[in-house]
Structure formats: structure tokens, C-alpha cells
Design a protein around this nucleic acid. Structure first.
Lengths: 212, 212
DNA sequence: GAGCAGAGACGATACGGATCGTCTAGAATC
DNA sequence: GATTCTAGACGATCCGTATCGTCTCTGCTC
């Protein structure tokens, strides 16, 4: 359903699924979904709670009841869109690393036409607790998986042993976020490969699937 | 940063707080200074034009006369605080690279207690022209200098020849921005060194000041 | 030169509109 | 009765624009 960002268009709600003395999961989902939908056409700073409530067919007070701020709402919303993907673990270590980098690109370049995570992070900076919560629920689990893969690459001598896996991840995600935010260089199809290649440049070629 | 339709004549340097039929440089400076001052205590999203005008002792309309938006104002303000530093060019290439990385850290970690550039970039995303202007006046000149240094490092074989200098810079600045934005890992005193070391790991040790 | 009129920048302030976050009211459900 | 819900009123703040009277520099006229 494209273009549903109207301001006061009344939604002919068929039937309010339920409302009682328990948290209504339909309401909850409707808010999250409306937020994600609006973010396809509206930049994060211009997104308002009121428009979310209206688009979800929900009272504004209900939104405030369950989320303390726009940042908290959007943090949950985008967390829900991105699943934890296991980076592959095959014989082709180079391909595995590229796949892991591609996950980074997908996560930090979401949605394809925006700088959502950048804007969100900047906004959450006002609320350290909320930022911490977002990082530990959204960022850290995904990093853990990639860290394991990188550690394996280091153990096998494909990546230099004195390199910190966390630094590599910061550089991967950071480069994506940076290019997205400043929009000075497009992120091409081979970007993941480029990101990985940098760390492999000093590695013995026979360990990798690349010709000398 | 250029003004829109304002005069392009050279301004006669007068000291009195005059107001005439030309742009008053005192007013202009007062606004920029007030914005920077406020940003020390207020996060970018919470910064308002009204508060800037009030703090500068200036009419709100005057601010809107010269800057189309908060983003444009702040972009000019922080551009004015950061000078283009020549990265050093000595015999010690490793030290030169670290110094260059430190410049990145200083620029993208400004101010010390905030995520200003991240928030600004996210906000400017709504106005591609303005973002483009900010990047070309603030970001690109600084990158040009570092690019030259990196190219020299590549020419001398300290960094692998198939690495794109621009990618290295994206990774440097990106890692800084990323750590700042998500605040998951502190940026220590040795961060510049760590950033550089990654790219030197595969280089012949005798070219560098480090022991094998 | 001297003087005057106009153009433009300025501070102040008022305006309608949007959004904020809180709050009440009433209905529905358990 | 307790709790959740929608709907909407509320005071507040900030937005961006408009207007007003004042100021000063510029350029034209004499």
C-alpha cells in the first residue's frame, strides 16, 4: 500500500480487534508498523508521534503510554525489522567475511533511501540509558556473531593477529554509516568486498580464494 | 559558506557595531558564536533558532534572513571552528599517518561531549543541496590533504597498493563517528594508532618504526 | 562638497500553524 | 472494579513569515 502518509485522512477501521485491561498486541503492532511505513517517506527528524498515532488509528496517549519518546519507538521498530543473521561458516573464509560485511551494509544502510540509524543514534544521544539499551539489544548481538567469524579468520592467519576484531567491525559499520551520512560516495555492489579486502591485503594469498 | 542573494562586495572593515544597508558582520558573528555556545550545553536536535537569536541578542527574522535552516547555520558554525590542518610530512611515515588519523578524530569527535556532526549530517539529509555544500566546503578539503599522505604511503609500499585511499579515510572517519554515535566503546588516546596499525599490518616492517 | 532620499539591515514583535506531552472523558473488556 | 483503549481538549513551545519603526550607508542632486 503506497503513500499512506496523509495527515487527517480518517481510516475506516473495520473492527477494533480488542481492547481490554491488557496491553493490546494489535495496537502495539499497528504503531510499530505505522512508524516503519511513515519512515519510508518521511525523514526521521520530521517524523512526529501524532502522525504515527494517526496512521496507526491509535490515540496519541496510547503511544505515550508505551514509549517514552520517538527515539524509543523507532529504536524498537527498526530493531524488529532486522533479524540476527548467522554469518556463513564455510570453507571459503574470504566469502564468509564478505557475507558478514554485507550484513553490516544491510543493517546500517537501512532503509535503502535514508540515514535512519544515524539520525536515530544522534537523537538517542540525549538519553544515554535509551541509547545503551538500543545498543545492547540491537547492535551487540549482531556483533557477537561477526566477532566469532573474525576471530576464526585471525586464528587461521588470514587476518593479522594483532588486529582487534571489534575495531574491524567499527570500521565496517562506520564506513557504511559515514558514506550514508555524508553521501559523498555511493555504496556500490562491491563495497563489502572492498571492506574485506583491506584486511586481507597482508595475508598469505594461498589461504584465500584469490589469485596472486 | 556562501550567502544566498547577499552582496558579494568586499566588506569594509569597520569596528563600530553599525547597522547599515549592508550585512552587519557583528551580527553575523554573534549568531555563529551563540550557536556554538549553546551547542556546548544543548544537543543539536533540541537547539532552536529562537534560542540562538535570543542568545545572540538578535531578531529571529535576521537569522532567517541569512540562513535558510538550523542545519545551514550549524553547518557554517562548525565549519568555522575547524581549520584545515596540514598533516605532517616527515621521514617517519607511521607517525605522519597517526597524526592524520588524529585530525580525523578531532574533527569527527567535536565537540568532545557530543555527536554534533552525526546529528547534523542526519538533519542535512533532508536537504541534499545543503548537504552537498557542507561536504564540499568542510569535508572534501580536509580529505584532499590526507589523501596525498596516504598515496605517499602507498607509493612507498607501506600500505598495500590495491587499497583505495578514500576507503581508508572513510574507515577512519567512520569508525570515529560510529563509536561516538553508538557510544559502545570509548575512544582512547591510542585510537589513532590503532586505526593506522590496521593498514600497516601487512607492510614490510623495515619501512616502519616498529620492531618485528 | 553638501545635503537629501532611498534602499537595505536591523531589533522587536505579532501572527497562524504544527507539534509537543499531559490530561480528562467515556466506552470496552476482563 | 481495574485496566486499556480512542478521541480530543489543553497550554506550551517553536516554527517560519510578516510588519513596523529605526538606523546607516549609498548614490543622486544641487
Amino acid at each position: 500500500m503506497p503513500d499512506q502518509a496523509a495527515t487527517s485522512k480518517p481510516q475506516p477501521k473495520r473492527k477494533p480487534p480488542s481492547s481490554g485491561n491488557r496491553r493490546n498486541p494489535h495496537t502495539h503492532k499497528a504503531v510499530i508498523k505505522a512508524a516503519l511505513e511513515l519512515l519510508k517517506t518521511v525523514h526521521y527528524p520530521a517524523l512526529t508521534i501524532e502522525s504515527i498515532a494517526a496512521a496507526a488509528g491509535v490515540g496519541k496517549a496510547t503511544v505515550y503510554r508505551w514509549w517514552p519518546s520517538k527515539g524509543a519507538l523507532v529504536a524498537e521498530a527498526i530493531s524488529s525489522t532486522l533479524t540476527v543473521e548467522d554469518p556463513p561458516d564455510t570453507d571459503d573464509l574470504r566469502a564468509d567475511l564478505i557475507a558478514a560485511a554485507e550484513i553490516s551494509i544491510r543493517n546500517y544502510a537501512y532503509p535503502s533511501s535514508g540515514v535512519l540509524i544515524t539520525a536515530l543514534a544522534a537523537d538517542l544521544a540525549e538519553d544515554p540509558e535509551l541509547l545503551q539499551s538500543f545498543v545492547s539489544t540491537f547492535v551487540q548481538p549482531r556483533r557477537a556473531l561477526v566477532r566469532k567469524l573474525l576471530q576464526r579468520a585471525i586464528d587461521e592467519g588470514v587476518i593479522a593477529p594483532d588486529v582487534d576484531p571489534d575495531l574491524i567491525m567499527d570500521m565496517w559499520a562506520g564506513a557504511v554509516m559515514y558514506r550514508r551520512a555524508l553521501n559523498h560516495t555511493p555504496i556500490g555492489n562491491t563495497f563489502a568486498e572492498e571492506l574485506v579486502e583491506v584486511f586481507l591485503s597482508g595475508a598469505p594469498a594461498h589461504k584465500l580464494g584469490k589469485s596472486p
